[in-house]
Nucleic acid binder design. Structure first.
Length: 289
DNA sequence: CACTTGACCTGTCCGC
DNA sequence: TGCGGACAGGTCAAGT
């Protein structure tokens, strides 16, 4: 699921829903999903207030009044869903909702708030995780130390974008754009969408991409991920926002999971290939080697 | 260092 | 209907 636009959508939702809430209890059914020792949770989470919700790359950061931060990675199937005590999923729930009743069998961590609302961390495949870390130490985590710049920041330039790829000169552009140490936040959906937008074949080697192609790719990454945020992200199977609702970007997708359909630019058939051992969608006419 | 592959998990879908 | 295999939004640890 969660690439930058999905994590940003969850962040915005949680920002509205949980700031100011006080944690009353925490439970965890899977040690790998939340490996912190119970005494840390008791000491630094219970009775803490939520003071901010942030995002860096595909990672969510929930800052607590104890100067600890919940660092959360949703990986492929993670969800963070807030349920107010008055909400009732099921009969009458919005058709865009994927969530019927929580907790369910994918629920790994439950954070209860005073007043009776709950935050559920669900994760079918158990790749995702939650960690409780002192706020000042978050930037020292190994992932944070090596992750690349945020591509949607206003001051992030096309030349900086191109320069980041020099470290991956002899690999494919698809592998490089998915590399989080090059650019933060691009995953398989937005890699394919952006490469189609820039008319670049994903198997092209980085050192064959021209400066003007990098500039176009930079523009497409920003255009497409900003649009995806506006549409609330992409739901393939599992992704939902903080209210349990699907994202709307997939109806705007131009290649991702559209194999067999016509390219909206030239009418040729979109195909699915494998690049960097990832399923990859291209228009073989618009994106040539 | 740069690069590739397998591993981590569960569930679903497809072909036999 | 059942069963094996491939595949799925992401990262790591190993290997070359």
């Amino acid at each position: 699921m969660p690439e930058l636009p999905e994590v940003e959508t969850v962040k915005r939702g949680l920002h509205k829903l949980i700031i100011g809430h006080k944690i009353s209890a925490v439970s965890n059914d899977n040690p790998k999903s939340f490996p912190n020792a119970l005494n840390d949770v008791a000491q630094f989470m219970v009775n803490a207030n939520i003071i901010d919700v942030r995002r860096r790359a595909k990672v969510l950061l929930i800052d607590l009044s104890t100067k600890y931060t919940l660092v959360i990675h949703l990986k492929m199937t993670g969800q963070l869903v807030f349920v107010n005590k008055l909400d009732r999923f099921g009969a009458g729930h919005p058709s865009s909702s994927l969530i019927n009743e929580l907790p369910d069998k994918s629920t790994r961590v439950i954070i209860d708030f005073k007043g009776g609302s709950h935050l559920y961390f669900n994760d079918q495949r158990k790749f995702g995780w939650v960690r409780l870390i002192p706020t000042l130490e978050v930037s020292n985590m190994s992932f944070m130390m090596k992750v690349g710049p945020e591509p949607l920041e206003a001051d992030f330039t096309a030349s900086e974008f191109a320069n980041r790829f020099k470290r991956r000169a002899r690999t494919t552009i698809k592998a490089a754009i998915l590399d989080q140490t090059v650019i933060a936040g691009v995953g398989n959906i937005y890699a394919d969408e952006s490469l189609w937008g820039a008319k670049i074949h994903p198997s092209r080697l980085v050192n064959t991409i021209t400066k003007s192609e990098f500039t176009e790719l930079y523009k497409q990454v920003r255009l497409i991920m900003n649009l995806a945020i506006e549409k609330g992200g992409s739901t393939i199977i599992d992704y939902v926002n903080a209210e349990g609702k699907k994202g709307g970007y997939m109806s705007f997708a131009r290649v991702f999971r559209r194999e067999g359909l016509a390219c909206s630019r030239c009418g040729n058939e979109i195909i699915k290939i494998k690049v960097a051992s990832r399923g990859t969608h291209i228009c073989p006419y618009c994106q040539q080697l």
